[in-house]
Nucleic acid binder design. Structure first.
Lengths: 153, 153
DNA sequence: ATTGATAGTACGGTTACCTTACTATCTGCG
DNA sequence: CGCAGATAGTAAGGTAACCGTACTATCAAT
């Protein structure tokens, strides 16, 4: 018995803790995404900006709506929007029907970035599927979703 | 054709982006781990403290060694150690052979926390295995590791 | 017209890191 | 031996990504 696994109650055995595994997976994926975005000329986009790109409506959304959908506070989201505005990815206009509210809308460039990000993430996943197995990646997705749902309930 | 998937080039389709999936999986796992630790009386342990618990040697380790293993800077790790010291989980003693260096060692309580954390993570994983399938969780682990290795190379 | 809710902003705080000095100590060489 | 250069750790200050608690502007409803 040199290095055989699976004695009896041996479960995980893979030594590396789950949170570290998830964190590293997230990190390598995001690193690649942002590297590619930069490569394609979408400068100044950072991790936190995803909260806007992921949840904004085509016709624009209110700050409060984006905050709720992303689970961030209004302030946190406000800062993100300000940065994206500075970089020309979104614009803030006062809602004509409600002068308290502002509508945040993707600019042409912002839409391009959104499309590019979705495409790049798709490419990353497809490359994984090619190298590690299409079914295995699909399964990983499903199991991750189930795990999240399970722990949240 | 109501809601059937798998037309042609349809790959991920699961709408939720991979980084979000990984992040949520990490978050729910860590939330549960720290909740349980607290429940068992291990107070004041935070996410970042894992860098010490995961990488420290039984005979104690130097700050520099822990920093290297965890990928953090010496300063970042120094702060973490200071906090763990305040909470009584580790102690810092000057290395008798090299007075520049200090040896960081788990206290009795620190070792208990380390053991508890490992046990709890094992329990979490076992529960997933019971509810979602033992093989599926094992596969998820493997695929995650492969994905990480793949993107890092 | 005032009162209470709502949209967004301002200000300050926290966590988890980082970089750039700096001090103390050790090691090797002339 | 004595000093140069490396190494261990600390100090100071900065940044990113958040948070909560005010506060202002506006709206809606009596």
């Amino acid at each position: 018995m040199t290095t055989r696994a699976g004695r009896q109650g041996d479960e995980g055995v893979s030594q590396i803790p789950l949170p570290a595994l998830f964190t590293q997976a997230k990190d390598v994926t995001l690193a690649k995404l942002h590297w590619r975005l930069n490569e394609e000329g979408f400068k100044g986009i950072r991790y936190s900006h995803g909260a806007v790109f992921r949840f904004i409506d085509a016709e624009g959304s209110r700050l409060t709506a984006l905050a709720e959908r992303s689970g961030l506070s209004k302030q946190a989201l406000g800062e993100v929007v300000t940065e994206l505005e500075r970089h020309g990815y979104v614009e803030r206009t006062t809602d004509p029907d409600d002068h308290r509210a502002k509508v945040i809308r993707l600019t042409e460039r912002g839409t391009q970035a959104q499309v590019a990000a979705a495409r790049i993430l798709g490419e990353i996943e497809r490359r994984w599927a090619q190298h590690l197995g299409r079914d295995r990646i699909a399964e990983m997705r499903m199991v991750l979703e189930e795990v999240i749902r399970f722990e949240k309930s």
